[in-house]
Design a protein around this nucleic acid. Sequence first.
DNA 1: ACCGGGATGTTCT
DNA 2: GAACATCCCGGTG
Length: 206
Amino acid sequence: MGRRRRLSRSFYDRDSLVVAPELLNKVLVAGGCAGRIVEVEAYRGGEDPASHAYRGRTARNAVMFGPPGHLYVYFTYGMHWCANAVCMPDGVAQAVLLRALAPLSGLEEMQARRRAARKETELCSGPARLCHALGITRDHDGADLVGGADGVAVFDDGTPPPDNPATGPRVGIRVAVEEPWRYWVPGDPNVTRWSPMPALPRRRPR
DNA sequence: ACCGGGATGTTCT
DNA sequence: GAACATCCCGGTG
C-alpha cells in the first residue's frame, strides 16, 4: 500500500450514503493504534428516524450538526462509546458510524485495553469494541479528522474501497430497519456477526 | 457453537 | 421512567 494521505474536508462534505462505502478500507488512527475500516452504517439526520439527530439538535448530538470531517462520539447502554465520522455541511446532521476495524498496528495496546478479547478478530469487531481498543471516549467528541491535531484521523493508504461492498440493514435499531444502510467488506473476519439482544427492562435496584 | 439474561448511566419524554 | 446505533459471561449442547 502507498503512503498514508489524510482525507480532505470535501471527502466528508457529501451524503453519508456516498461517504459510507467509500470509508471502507480507509485507515482509522487513534490512541497510538491503527485499523482498517471494514464495516460502517450511514445515519441521515432529519430524514432518518433511527438517527440521533432526527428530533433535532441536543447537547449530545451537537457535533453531528457541525461541519464535516469531525468525530461524533456518544455514550450508550451505560458503558460503551461509539464513534461516527460527521458528513454534510455545517447545519446538516449526517454521520457514518464506524462499526468494525481490521487491526493494523498497536495490537498489543488494543489487547491491553480489551482484556476480554480472545482473538485478534475480537479486538475491533463492533462499534463499542473498536472505541475501547483505540481509547476513544467523550474526550474525542468533536475531534477534527482532517487536521488530525486531536490524535484521531482517517487516512487513505492506497487501498481502494471494495468494488462491490456488501449491504444490509443497520444493527441494533428499532425503526427504519428496512433501509440497507450498513456497508461492509465482503468476507472480512472482523465484520460483526452477532445480532444484539433488544434492550431488556431493568430490574429495580434492591 | 449458540443462546439468553444482566450490566451500566445518559438522554429525552 | 423508558429507551438506548452494545457487550460480556455463564449456561447448555
